[in-house]
Design a protein around this nucleic acid. Sequence first.
DNA 1: GTGATATGCAATCAAAAGGTTGCGCAACGG
DNA 2: CCGTTGCGCAACCTTTTGATTGCATATCAC
Lengths: 104, 104
Amino acid sequence: MTTTLVPVFAALGDETRWSILTALGEGDASASALAGRLPVTRQAIAKHLAVLAEVGLVEPVRVGREVRYRVIGSQLSDTARRLDAIGAEWDRRLAAIKQIAEGL
Amino acid sequence: MTTTLVPVFAALGDETRWSILTALGEGDASASALAGRLPVTRQAIAKHLAVLAEVGLVEPVRVGREVRYRVIGSQLSDTARRLDAIGAEWDRRLAAIKQIAEGL
DNA sequence: GTGATATGCAATCAAAAGGTTGCGCAACGG
DNA sequence: CCGTTGCGCAACCTTTTGATTGCATATCAC
């Protein structure tokens, strides 16, 4: 599932969502459970979780009447890898341009 | 210069800014020059460049009366490295939790 | 100096984002 | 059966964001 990268960054560009991800790092939790620990309402958290799920950073797991969310660590690593690849490509190209600029 | 990471992601979470970064990848350029290639006005680009400069992804270079912008490739690589570190940490912790959950 | 070109600043606007409250419904526990 | 807990919608509100137009200012070329 090759997520489009940019939305992933958009999802990661919000402090509250990082708080949620961090909280989920200590174990799966539902929106209600998270609302107990974070200074925002359950609904706000639910929306954030929807955004995170949309880009594959978390995954919902139904447990009876509640819906726990789990962090998908691999998606984070994957994004990092892709970003790194782009950074490397950039360095390469920029180096090439520098060479040209120096009249070599 | 340890930029706060989250704003960097926020900056990277916009298609237009990626267009700008991509365009800059082919060589330094001014807001006006970029406006010629992208479907947005110079001012819009100027704002995006300000955002990108704010998080250290690009750097302004004054050349006479114009201001060229250069991509800082290292900032991209650096961000990738930090994200990867977080991803790794996550994997580690999630694995540990899984072990506990399995009663091992 | 004059005209063309580049940047900067401000006002304005529409849409998106983050957040809240309120309500209805499903499901669990006694 | 009934109260409680958890979700999901929907409406609504406010702030931010992406983008525009307009104008002032600086600078380069001639």
